[in-house]
Design a protein around this nucleic acid. Structure first.
Lengths: 209, 209
DNA sequence: TAGATTGTTAATCGATTAACAATC
DNA sequence: TAGATTGTTAATCGATTAACAATC
């Protein structure tokens, strides 16, 4: 049974890549897909692809034809939760935070950004892309009223730990952290780090030997 | 010998975290650091920390005192190449591309963004943060003249593959890809993907079970 | 000295790849 | 039918953790 297959972190990271790829194929009128073809196009091994797709799809593949693309797309969207809307808030409306407020692509992932918090009086109480900016001083009063599940942290490093604690005190259980520091938070808080310094270090290492 | 220790990808990702942490400690006047203390503060295991630091540091730790912070900082900076400047270019000056042009933090990592390419006539030949925006139509003529090592790809998904090929044809060997698709490029091109859809999928999975 | 901390070697855990029988 | 493709089980590879002797 699929339920018994544990999903690994690298697998989860690959699912959006499959989904994007299959959606592209479907738009070109393709109906079926095989693991050798995916392997050739995405560079993953055939065995890995079969295992990945078995975990999230109820359907079975058929020799010769492979799997039906429309079924896979539906299963991937269900697994990734793209059909259920999740509200998020931007904490720190600097360059990156603004880019996220303006970005249209998050909606595709079921992510709905409802607003932002900042300490810049020039933007507080204004709107960016129809999303209101609140004063970060009032975060512990306002945030609990906003029905938000995920806080997207894009504040300067120096204040990130302090602000993260306030976010947690406001009842948020998940932090998508774009600040390149380690956050020290209670064990029940889910943190996903996007550390550009780490990513760049890996790129540089590959490039320079 | 350190040279014989292979460096793993997860290790490389951790080094910027250590560096940020140790720099913070140094600014508070701390002189020595032990692996139990780092473990407590950053959440990595003590054994992992010792192995990580052995790989990049010529020095040795001492029982009781630990390692000297200033030496570790220097070794980490050297390993990560933060003292050698690397030129980069933004391909696609949308919201995210602009945020990167304006971001001050890359300099700390030795990364110097020299300009951008876009197809928007409202910004072509203008400057953003003193960095010139060029027409993407001329990329194959202009990019080879700019002494750039890394292309930061922040274009819309639909054109990413096509533009990436042009970037490669301009002689670039490394692409830092922020577009959530798989790029199909020659084997000698180094690609590092920052896929927010993957990152969000991992966060959602941790949050929702 | 005593013992906190180190560095190293062995064991375990996790993920990918290889091998191969089943099947349409 | 023949054989391309599947799904599953075993083997390998990679990374982390455990165990422990060495040391200041």
């Amino acid at each position: 049974m699929n339920i018994h297959n544990k999903v690994t972190k690298p697998q989860i990271a690959r699912y959006p890549v499959y989904l994007n790829y299959l959606t592209e194929l479907a738009s070109k009128g393709e109906i079926f897909i095989s693991s050798p073809k995916i392997s050739k196009d995405l560079g993953y091994s055939e065995e890995q692809i079969r295992k990945d797709l078995q975990v999230i799809s109820k359907g079975k593949g058929k020799p010769f034809s492979g799997r039906k693309i429309s079924t896979l797309i539906k299963d991937l969207e269900d697994f990734l939760g793209y059909n259920a809307k999740t509200n998020a808030i931007i904490i720190g409306v600097g360059h990156l935070g603004q880019a996220f407020l303006l970005y249209k692509g998050f909606a595709e992932y079921g992510l709905n950004i409802v607003g932002g918090f900042d300490n810049n009086i020039n933007i507080i109480n204004k709107e960016i892309n129809q999303k209101k900016i609140y004063s970060i001083e009032n975060i512990e009063e306002i945030l609990p009223t906003l029905d938000v599940e995920i806080a997207i942290l894009t504040v300067p490093s120096e204040i990130a730990q302090e602000i993260a604690l306030k976010v947690v005190n406001s009842g948020i259980k998940a932090i998508w952290n774009f600040v390149p520091i380690h956050l020290d938070l209670p064990d029940d808080i889910v943190i996903e780090n996007v550390n550009l310094a780490s990513s760049l270090a890996i790129l540089s290492h590959k490039l320079k030997g």
